[in-house]
Each structure stands twice: as C-alpha cells, then as structure tokens.
C-alpha cells in the first residue's frame, strides 16, 4: 500500500451571499496516494474547481472553508494562515489552470515567471534559476528554450503557453500537482500532446496528480481513480475501470451515455433531462432525484448513504440498498 499524500475529510466550502452562505462543496471526502492520478469529473457548477481551490488556499475573497480538514503530509491546510500557505503553494502543491493566457502574466517574460518560484522557494540565485528554467522548458518539450526565456506569453501559441505553465508548476518538484481542465482550451492534436506530456512527467517525477475535467475521454486516458461530483457532492468513486465498465450511479451512467462515441456510428445518445441545480436551490433528499429516471419515494425524503460496491468503488445512491427492486417499475423504462 502506498502512502497517502492528501487526505480531504468532510470538506464544506461556502460562498457569502445576500441570502446567507451558499454551499458549493457539501462534505467531500477523498484521498490521493503517492504516484496516483485522481480525476474529478462533473459538469460546470458541480464544485470540482472549488474543491481544488480550497486545497490550494486560493478561494475568492467571498469563499471560505466552513468545515472539514485537508491533510497534506500530516499538516492541515484548512487551518493554515495565508502566509503559511504561500510556503506550500508552488512548492509542495502546485496547480495548472485552464486558460494559460490568463494564468500567465502578460507583461513579464517567460523567464521572469519561471525564475520566480525557484528564487522564492529554493532560494536559488538569479543565474542558477535561469539555468534551471532552461532545463525545465527543455523537459516540457519546448524547442529552443534559451530564446523562449526572453519571450512574452503573447508570442507563444496556446499549447506552448500550457507547456510553460506546466514547467512553472513543476519547477520546485511538487509532490502533488492539481490540473484544472488543462486541455479544455486546446485543439485535439495539441490536447493529445499535453496529455502525453503530463503522463510522462508524472511517471518521471513520481508525483501525485489531481486532474479536474468534464471530458470523459480525457479521464479514460489519464486516471487511476475517478471521483464523480454532482451539485457539490461526491456521488461515485472508484477505479477508472470500475467507473467506465460498471458505473452504478444513474448520473455516472447518464454522463457516459451523453458523450457521442467517435468509434460507434450506431451509438444511442441518451441525454439526462433537466439541468444542474443552482447553488441556492433547496433539494430534499438526494440532490440528483429531480433528474433521476429511477427516483423513488425514499430519494425525495432522505439523502442517500454511501454504499460500498467493491473495495474501491463507493456510490451514494439508495438504489444500492438491499431490498430495492433493481429491475422494477421506472428503472426498466430507461438506461
């Protein structure tokens, strides 16, 4: 058994609003082991990015961690002061963002931005940092790295910018890398390059990775384990094979059935009815029940418990409870 790098327990993240606190993450618990890639999937508004920002201590000023703990290397990140977090961020834990153009500062050269974490965290001199920067750019596959150091972000293409972001994130050898939709803004051929690069680097540096994405294809390429989130809750968790070959939660099944399959012309597209609830929407019982084709009375009354399917796969759904008719009534009508 490999050691656990990150342990998140009952994380609740809320946002201040005129109508009182709005919970964006409602009690998420998960862990990441050394060298493992965990994918968090879900649609926009499900709380996947907010979970990542909570770990990084980068929540916007109206957001706060209301409850729960985030243990990273035996230290609780949720209780750290912003000053202490600065020492962790970019050093032990780093993050890659979706849109590389907004994540890089347009008025500083690539070299300046890649030297910065090296000089702050590793206390390198400017010259040493410069040399290390060139090595890092070479590692992420950027051609002519010496010249690139003096260029500005706008002179690079989208794929190159994302490579620079990865180089900066990896500069201090973090033990955990969080990637928030790193390939969403890129074209498919470039996306394939970046996925290969992340997979190679992860192996090379033996780090753990949390990848946040909505693309079920990307998940299948990169994940060891998968967490599916819906409306702030983790509704299913398991090894990547389990999630794809034996999904249990109706939402996971629906998600897989609504992605058109490129290899199968006869693929029957089955949309999930309705749309994601708003943060302030009060839903009794299971938060998915208004959109769920199998919902029965209990789903509307009581929030589901977590049921264990295999040693790694857990599902939050009343259908898993023993005694529930698996093939009866509304269940047979769809999926």
């Amino acid at each position: 058994m490999k050691e656990t790098v990150l342990e998140v327990k009952d994380l609740v993240t809320t946002f201040k609003s005129a109508d009182g606190p709005l919970p964006a993450v409602r009690g998420a618990s998960f862990s990441v082991k050394k060298g493992e890639t965990l994918c968090i999937v879900g649609e926009s508004g499900c709380g996947k990015s907010i979970t990542a920002l909570s770990i990084m201590g980068l929540l916007p000023s109206n957001g706060m961690i209301a409850d729960g703990s985030i243990f990273f290397n035996q230290k609780n990140l949720a209780e750290m002061s912003p000053k202490q977090m600065q020492k962790v961020r970019g050093n032990d834990v780093s993050m890659i963002f979706q849109e590389p153009m907004t994540a890089l500062n347009p008025v500083f050269t690539v070299g300046f931005q890649i030297r910065e974490p090296l000089m702050i965290h590793l206390k390198l001199s400017k010259k040493q940092a410069h040399m290390r920067g060139i090595e890092l750019l070479k590692m992420v596959g950027i051609p002519s790295p010496v010249e690139r150091m003096n260029q500005f972000p706008h002179e690079l293409s989208g794929g190159m910018r994302q490579r620079v972001m990865i180089a900066i994130a990896l500069s201090c050898n973090p033990s955990l890398l969080i990637a928030d939709e790193p390939t969403t803004a890129l074209d498919v051929t470039i996306q394939a390059q970046i996925i290969d690069l992340l997979n190679d680097l992860k192996e090379q540096l033996d780090m753990s990775m949390i990848m946040i994405t909505h693309d079920m294809g990307v998940v299948a390429e990169i994940a060891d384990r998968v967490i599916v989130m819906y409306a702030g809750e983790i509704i299913e968790e398991g090894r990547v094979e389990e999630i794809y070959e034996n999904p249990q939660h109706p939402y996971t099944k629906g998600l897989l059935a609504s992605v058109p399959n490129v290899d199968d012309p006869e693929f029957d597209l089955k949309p999930i009815v309705g749309s994601m609830p708003m943060l302030n929407e009060q839903i009794s019982g299971c938060r998915f029940h208004p959109r769920c084709p199998f919902a029965f009375d209990k789903c509307m009354e009581k929030s589901p418990e977590t049921f264990q399917v295999t040693d790694k796969q857990n599902v939050r759904c009343w259908l898993q409870e023993e005694g529930v008719e698996q093939n009866g009534g509304r269940r047979a009508s769809s999926l």
């Binding site: 293409s157 794929g159 190159m160 498919v188 051929t189 470039i190 996306q191 394939a192 390059q193 996925i195 290969d196 693309d215 079920m216 294809g217 990307v218 998940v219 299948a220 390429e221 990547v240 094979e241 794809y244 070959e245 897989l256 992605v259 399959n261 490129v262 290899d263």
Partner: peptide, 22 residues
C-alpha cells in the same frame, strides 16, 4: 485528428499519431 481524440473507454491502448508542432 481522429487518432488524437481521447476515447471514453479504458484498457484499450491505441497507437496515437503524434503531430509535431502547432
């Protein structure tokens, strides 16, 4: 282009044609 699309199936490793550059 077709080989670069990530497929939502696990376990089947396909040979991907890598395009150089942008």
């Amino acid at each position: 282009l077709l080989s670069a699309i990530p497929r939502p199936t696990v376990g089947r490793k396909r040979e991907r044609i890598r395009l150089k550059g942008d």
